[in-house]
Design a protein around this nucleic acid. Structure first.
Lengths: 243, 243
DNA sequence: GTTTTTCATCTGGGCCGACCAGTTGATTAA
DNA sequence: TTAATCAACTGGTCGGCCCAGATGAAAAAC
């Protein structure tokens, strides 16, 4: 049952699709500035010839790049590099960060945390003012999941980050604002990365403890206190990466 | 030059792509509840047969629906209708509102304006604190565009809404937060609809005047005043739709 | 009768080369 | 100088092919 070699593990080799290779190549050209905003791309046929990838795949790749906000395609006219500060969405930013190996710059981190205070802070205050017993039970159930993960010998950090994401999205869901949870979904990859780093930096227990702290504020309907706590924890995180 | 009929204008007929027709059909089925969360979709080959659209296009459409948060596709298993409150993004919401003829419910409007205060309010305060002369010039240039539109006999409302969008996104851009402008792009269809309604309700002049008012606060670095003004104008809009 | 194995069938993922219908711009005709 | 023509080029679509994993019923082993 065990293969001939079980000392050195090779690991899976996942073959990247031609489409993703093509998309990454173009993204790279754009983000490094080799292709500038307004530049026309070669036609799909030219790209087919150049890359030895079929036109269908090229076409699908270009459409994907358009959805990400990198290109502007006009049927039967061609594709040009879009001003992705104008047309870009969070997906564009996610692609940008992913291309940088998942690392955000300090400015991006600061921007992210500002956005977090703006959105989650607003949700938190609304929830404190309008919470019901059912909201408390809903959030407690998620905290219980986190506690169960902490009981294990080796804490599954990815799973804990996922639970923390669901908890904070839960705050947005229960704030009765239909937009806030959707915005958090938009941020999802970035937020997950953030929680992973936060777990590494401050430990699993500490992060779950902080989550419980917010629940206390919600219970006692202390909107101002909750907001101050959020601001403080963001400030602590920023200080920790500056040092 | 002029066709045989120039009294009644026909207007361009832009032929929708098969992919978009397919995507809209499925969205409709989901949003009207004919397909419920968890329901399995027919296989790509069945859909091909049923719709007479090739598998290539069907596949591309399903991938788009997954990105919009409407479907959850598992390779070699099939696609099921996703819980779009969980997986949805702003694109999902845009589709939902578009399907409703661009009309938001009162709760959606309230949610939108709360989100606007959270995001643009935060940007406004940051900008007031850190503005440069160049920021002022940048925003003044956009205001000039709006003024030019006002000079015309019949104000082009769609164009003005577009300029107002660019102005308020400009505030986010110049706030030096990389996330805020992208979030506004995400909202774009909703925001455009909002400005159109605001122009109808309060008039073109009044909306441009308010935009200039924000510029005053930014010039005098009055962050608190700017925020209060934003809150007030949102409140006025909410009152006007309640009445 | 119960468990295990086998294997035909179905799924989405990926790719290809050909064809379709609008756009464009130089050439031709008026 | 102007208008009509049309070949070349564009993105969009097509149907077919193969791949590898999932599925479940039939066959084999117990």
């Amino acid at each position: 049952m065990v293969g001939p070699v079980d000392i050195m593990s090779i690991g899976v080799i996942d073959v990247p699709s031609r489409k993703s290779l093509f998309v990454n190549r173009i993204e790279e050209q754009i983000l490094t500035g080799r292709m500038k905003v307004g530049d026309s791309l070669p036609s799909e046929r030219q790209l087919e010839e150049e890359t030895h990838i079929s036109k269908t795949v090229i076409h699908a790749g270009l459409v994907e790049l358009e959805q990400k906000g990198f290109l502007e395609i006009t049927p039967r006219r061609g594709a040009v590099v879009a001003n992705y500060e104008e047309t870009g969405t969070m997906e564009t930013l996610n692609a940008l960060i992913r291309l940088n190996g998942g690392n955000m710059t300090k400015k991006q981190t600061r921007s992210f945390l500002e956005a977090r205070i703006a959105i989650e802070g607003s949700a938190l205050q609304r929830l404190c003012e309008n919470r019901t017993e059912d909201d408390i039970r809903y959030l407690e159930a998620i905290i219980d999941e986190a506690d169960r993960l902490l009981e294990s010998e080796h804490v599954d950090e990815a799973a804990l980050a996922e639970v923390l994401f669901r908890y904070h999205r839960g705050i947005c869901v229960r704030s009765r604002n239909e937009f806030f949870p959707l915005l958090l979904n938009e941020f999802r990859p970035i937020i997950m990365e953030f929680w992973l780093r936060s777990i590494h930096r401050f430990g699993a227990v500490s992060n779950v403890h902080l989550a419980k702290r917010y629940l206390d504020f919600i219970r006692s309907r202390d909107a101002a206190g909750a907001f101050r706590r959020l601001e403080r924890s963001v400030k602590e995180y920023l200080d920790s990466i500056d040092g």
